[in-house]
């Protein structure tokens, strides 16, 4: 359910109807920013939003995204450490 994709707001096209132009990998589509609109629509320009059926449904939180990626990277490093330890243990075993 619910195909949603990240896009960047590049311009406000109709302030009265809260419409903006969003760009998704070089493709442009006018979207409604009603769900994420604050007092100043122009503040949205440059923001990354999650787009679903022509609406910007959420502003993507960069700090949270970075944190998620950090956790993923941590798992990768932990795995490398484990593999290194396993190799070390094996080398020790082989030596004995």
């Amino acid at each position: 359910m619910c195909l949603g994709i990240p896009g960047q707001i590049v311009a406000i096209t109709d302030a009265s109807r809260q419409m903006a132009m969003a760009e998704i990998s070089g493709v442009r589509r006018e979207v409604s920013v009603v769900p994420v609109a604050g007092a100043d629509l122009n503040a949205l320009i440059g923001a990354w939003v999650l787009i679903h059926v022509g609406f910007a449904m959420a502003v993507i939180d960069e700090a949270e995204a970075a944190e998620t990626l950090e956790a993923l990277r941590g798992l990768g490093e932990a795995q490398e450490t484990l593999e290194a330890m396993a190799e070390g243990a094996k080398a020790l075993e082989d030596a004995q």
Binding site: P6, E62, A65, R73, A78, Q79, L82
Partner: peptide
């Protein structure tokens, strides 16, 4: 950040899968 490719990185998948 473009919020797509970063979350499709096959190198990062290794750690999670393990």
């Amino acid at each position: 950040m473009r919020y797509v490719e970063e979350f499709r990185d096959p190198a990062a998948a290794k750690g999670v899968l393990a």
